[in-house]
Design a protein around this nucleic acid. Sequence first.
RNA 1: GGGGCGGUAGCUCAGCCGGUUAGAGCAAGGGACUCAUAAUCCCUCGGUCGUGGGUUCGAGUCCCACCCGCCCUACCA
Length: 545
Amino acid sequence: MAASGSTDLSTTPGGHAGGKAYYVSTPIYYVNDAPHLGHAYTTVAGDVLTRWHRQRGEKVWYLTGTDEHGQKVMRTAQTNGVTPKEWADRLVETAWKPLWEHLEIANDDFIRTTQERHTHRVQEFVQDLYDKGEIYKGSYEGPYCVGCEEFKLPGDLIDGTGEYEGQKLCPIHGRPVEMLSEDNYFFRMSAYTERLLEFYAANPDFIQPASARNEVLKFVQQGLQDLSISRSTFDWGIKLPWDPAHVLYVWVDALLNYATAVGYGADQAKFDATFPADVHLVGKDILRFHAVIWPAMLMAAGLPLPGKVFAHGWLLVGGEKMSKSKLTGISPHQLTDHFGVDAYRYYFMRAIPFGQDGSFSWEDFTARYTSELANDFGNLASRVAAMVGKYFDGTLPAATADGPAEEALHAALANAVKSADSKVEQLDFQGALDDVFGFVKLVNGYLTEQEPWKVAKDTSEEGQARLATILYTAAESLRGLAVLLNPVMPATAEKLWASLGAEAHLGALPAQRVQDAGTWGQLPAGATVTKGEILFPRLEEKKDS
RNA sequence: GGGGCGGUAGCUCAGCCGGUUAGAGCAAGGGACUCAUAAUCCCUCGGUCGUGGGUUCGAGUCCCACCCGCCCUACCA
């Protein structure tokens, strides 16, 4: 997949004068099914984060991909009468990649766990651990459902009633499970309990938010058990090099994507310049794999540990986690068809604190779209461009009469930039957008107070200078907003950039440094301002649901 | 069973180590304005802070019990 432009490792072979890339990952998604809102939520967040960092001029690497091994994929493929690989190919090409393109995700790479660059390196990795004595052969005993042909987790089982009173039943088949054992290879994870605890203590920001950190700490403090890392009851997976009768446990396989995708064992220069990840974005459900198993694996291999594992919350509908089985499933396309891609990206970043569960609804989306995007922001761009067109024939005039009101806006923009920047750094997207839209509100208020439409009737030199100053101030404010909103709403920000005639003087929008966005007076007088299309048209009608 | 999180205006949420009349945004009502996407700006309305006790001079804010929602985890083998 094409890189987004600013990241170019080829220019600095070996040396990397620019230092290590800011490396962000999403989980690799299980191709068992098509992507849903939750996947898109994580991926959009990572995209906003990495676009922001790119606009700070940093070298960035944003990785996503798909997890294609495991029994569920195999079974789904069988049900559909195709091989697992064919099934994965189909979903990746017709569902996953198209959705990321649709949502304007600028990932630098897309890894699939069935690719050779992954499977071969994974085999080398586990062979290395095996040679080091980190992996041993043992046997696993657990409840097994004959109907499912797989081991169940004790927590998945349900209590039997009636003729099965006192027994544990498979939740799918409703029949008693039996205890079976199979030979497995185990990773000596128990040996890493103390080292992990020390690591967490030394790196208090490693797991965020705090609620997630607490859960992991409590879990690890109970002491870790060795991890079964192989299966021999099915074969859709990566074979253990020393015992091909076993395939690697899908999670060990999956976690290693973060290393294999950036050159582990294949391209040392790229690996050194990228690994480890600065931020692993994960959902709460897979926190433990990333905050416990993955670091333990890296410790065993002697590799550096990631900077941060950030567990975001669930999207809730009516207080419940979204799921198709509960008929609350809404596809990303249903939302983007109605609201547009940029509004979609904006909405989830703005409405829900990253790291917490958040309620989402069609009504809330509609309300925010109308109030924040159309009325506050879109209309601001519209009224400013209209007045520059009406009073100055579309040529941006110079500000020559700055007063307290203007200076207040200069300072407000600088503050918004500074504050938003630090909040994005902490993955507080909601807070950052709060800062940006607080500034939007100030600019609207500024126009209402200065009443340029009244000043325009004053044809004296002072009056015209005043009018010019007001409109320049408003337009320059929009220039700052275009830069700040580009990582979140790239298509819209680009429209605004074009409307301001900024590119001719300042260059391409993505090249604007976010840390300079608050520097006043960048948009030059003489720029050609055009009204352009409405950024956020009013929504036609409320869709019933 | 154990642990965690949450229950604050119609809606979504802020309220740090307890301290004057509990805040914001949206929605609703009124006013101002007309450059603009019938948009903007100002004002107003609106809460027994899940329930019941307790500690304290004073509790949304600490303690106990309970109710409701969600999450993690265990087990009676």
